[in-house]
Amino acid sequence: MSGVFSPTRAEIKERTLRTDKWWLQPAITFGVLLSFVIYATFRTFENKNYFAEPLISPFYSPCLSASCEPGTVLAIFGQPFNNQYFGIGISPALFILIFPLGFRMTCYYYRKSYYRAFWMSPPACAVAEPHTKYTGETRAPLILQNSHRWFFYIGLVFNVILTWDTILAFRNAEKEWGHMSVGTLVFIFSTTMLWLYSLSCHTCRHTLGGRLKHFSKHPIRYKVWTVVSALNHKHPTFAWISLFGVAGADIYVRAVASGAITNFYFF
């Protein structure tokens, strides 16, 4: 017997005496994150309907494979990967999704969410967890959570690429500039939320100023740190909205590319 049932502690048989709906938040988190994982996995392996000029799904950008549809390849990256290895066809999304996925998996906010909702460590505050042993993030594999800053840096590169995709969305299907469609708005929203999610990140806060011992010697970094700290208060909100935003952008592109809907142009 360990934890709250240890012999030295007050003898109470219940795992928790909380009377509120403590299970609701982790249950919602579990449902939403699992839905996203299932959808993202489906889209990763679907390997079609990811491009409708000028919109490319964020799940497939940058498209780096030899099988990428014409018009999806960025010249700066080219097509360094084959469309199959060892006779197995590889979706272009598989070459890139590890990076945004890694950024979210190692994010301090998402860690809280999935440790509670999926691993029940703990399921909620003052609710006894079911595990008999616990070593936290001190050994493999969870010690790899310390790689968050590297995913953060790579995530910034992805944000730049998705920003470029959003700029391209100001073209029409004939690649003429100066147009705007519903897809443009969807991309602007998705990319803006991704930037806010990245810039409000704890690692960003630390890198830009948090690691300093003397703010007074670095007034500009201090100012930047105060701005990022204010954004950091909203980091969980940005984490969720950006997740929905990127999924929404993919759903929209898929719907347009499959012919289910037409991308309406305002001008």
Partner: peptide, 15 residues
């Protein structure tokens, strides 16, 4: 002091 054992589930902040 075991900082690495914390998995930042934020209950300390909540209470």
């Amino acid at each position: 002091h075991g900082l690495g054992m914390c998995n930042i589930t934020k209950c300390c902040t909540e209470v």
